[in-house]
Design a binder for these strands. Structure first.
Lengths: 335, 335
DNA sequence: TTGTACGCGTTATCAA
DNA sequence: TTGATAACGCGTACAA
């Protein structure tokens, strides 16, 4: 007895009907008599039949496959997004293929090639930026592409962005209201569009108040970089009394650096604001004031875009608001 | 101009060869003349051809698809494992389908049904426990199944477990060497096999030294539960001076509860040991002594099991060692 | 409502 | 080495 998958033919033979009857039974809206349906279902059950979606995808134009292209997917914000996306996609009857786009696994381009190999209906990119030629290839093949948090000028994909500039502006005024005057910004030197937008927005908003910003960039967008930046920032002759970190991980590192390495108190000596509002922000050791990524809205808009009824020409860019979440890393003074 | 995927036929026409020649060009080890190969490659490049893995999977017995069944995948340990798995699977030429098995998305059984729909070569379960009937169905269909950290008596799948009992024993002796005598154990009431094994192992090892253990179970295996347990534990007349938490997240909650809610110092007043060794364990606010999940070994063994040359009958259970990682949440005294 | 026959894009087999 | 042809498992137009 060799182990194989059960086919519609097997079920048909067992139920004593034609193979089309089996097909129709599992095709919503097809016309089958109740009796036939019942006999087919019974045979399918005992044999353990499952429709082969791969073969089905060969006939239909849709495969039901959506590719998620992600790098560093064990990062809290990323994994949160991946979880929410798979959840919503499953609800919509789609299935997620997860493509690791970490540098060691080849580029984002290689990942996008895989989406073509498996005839994905769509690709959602949470990381990296694809080559324009590859993007065009995917679009020409009828795929839909969603770019999350990677503002760029490629035409064709749906772009979902956060209003980083506005958030940065809110951060500046929050610091000012808390009585801070020596502002700093902690960034990585990865140069992701959204991170750079936060930096530029912060510097610009501060300039509106006639303030300079100490900008420090270091390493990847992770905890260790934040801690490293704290050491260099608080060793200065004119240390900052407020630091805006481009994401929460860096903020945690900065806070730990300030407290444990430099003996500073938060928010008494330094105020800190982060970005993302990941789980850890609410932990008692941090109580970080931060901007909340509108994960649900991001996911909702992404999945809506994939639905067939959608007019792919109508919308191109969606900009979502990231509201501030007040906690204790900044002295809040009501204006 | 309607958007469609490019087929082998298109390439064949363009290159002026037969479809078989195209197929052979993209089949490693097939015999094609250099000239033909070159012409095919050229045509494929300009047309943007990609082999349809779905159709290929129809012919071959392998689809190259491996399903990852995960719940709460934004948990640090889970996401770390998922990242490592996809990385290694991609290196092995496989592709990962991610199935969300959170309760709201239907059970693990529903997820496993999906793996059948897409003719996955294998399924790797990081969460939940499948019904035996479904497991049998998958195995009968020729699928391979890997169960990670879910010790049970189902026959057929490869089981990869951690030696929780031994780790718990190490935890007890570590506490004793640090001078602790009032031991406690913090668990969730989820009842996952591995978590229960840690609890039982800890209690048994303590009993060997004639010590009782205060066992507290609460909620899910998350931060908030740890913090909640801290409050109830340290309000006792005989509060513990050592707490073993079944995972790091609970340990962080417990530490924060002890420090911020109860005014205790770690490790002076209480020693804490966790399990998993996730990123946050090394953060300055925690410096948690914990057991390191052998993620690389887990992944390596899982992927090796999927390789065709593997004798599926030979190995059934692999037990891996989780070494302790010393940090500052326990006063370490060299014996 | 049912069954027959064809096509989807690929690989395997066979004869040339 | 090459090309024609038969599968693979399915949906669907067509005729019954």
């Amino acid at each position: 007895m060799t182990k194989t998958f059960v086919s519609a033919d097997d079920v048909a033979k067992r139920a004593g009907v034609s193979r089309s009857a089996v097909s129709r039974t599992f095709t919503p809206g097809a016309s089958v008599s109740d009796e036939t349906r019942q006999r087919v279902m019974e045979a399918a059950e005992t044999l353990g039949y499952h429709v082969n979606q791969l073969a089905r995808g060969l006939m239909r134009s849709e495969t039901g496959i959506v590719c998620l292209v992600v790098s560093e997917m064990d990062t809290p914000y990323r994994s949160k997004l991946v979880r929410a996306l798979t959840h919503e996609l499953q609800k919509a009857g789609k299935i997620s293929m997860l493509l690791n786009a970490d540098r060691s696994d080849g580029s984002v381009d290689a990942a996008l090639r895989q989406t073509l190999h498996y005839r994905a209906d769509a690709s959602i990119l949470l990381s990296g930026l694809p080559d324009k030629a590859i993007t065009k290839l995917c679009l020409d093949s009828g795929q839909r592409i969603v770019l999350i948090n990677r503002d760029d000028d490629i035409d064709g994909p749906l772009r979902i962005n956060i209003d980083d500039k506005q958030a940065a502006r809110v951060a500046v005024s929050a610091f000012l209201r808390a009585g801070c005057r020596r502002l700093a910004l902690a960034n990585s030197d990865v140069g992701t569009p959204s991170l750079m937008a936060r930096e530029r927005g912060f510097v610009a908003a501060a300039a509106d108040y006639g303030l300079d910003v100490m900008v420090v960039r270091h390493g990847n967008t992770i905890y260790e970089s934040g801690r490293h930046i704290a050491q260099s920032l608080f060793a200065r002759l004119d240390p900052p009394d407020a630091v805006f970190c481009v994401n929460d991980l860096m903020a945690f590192g900065l806070m730990d650096g300030a407290r444990h390495d430099c003996g500073l108190r938060i928010p008494e000596d330094v105020c800190v604001i982060g970005f993302d509002n990941i789980e850890q922000s609410a932990w008692a050791s941090y109580e970080l004031t931060t901007f909340s990524q509108p994960v649900d809205a991001i996911v909702e808009n992404s999945v809506a875009w994939l639905r067939p009824g959608n007019d792919s020409e109508s919308i191109r860019t969606i900009e979502l608001h990231a509201p501030i979440v007040w906690r204790k890393s900044i002295a809040r003074k009501v204006s």
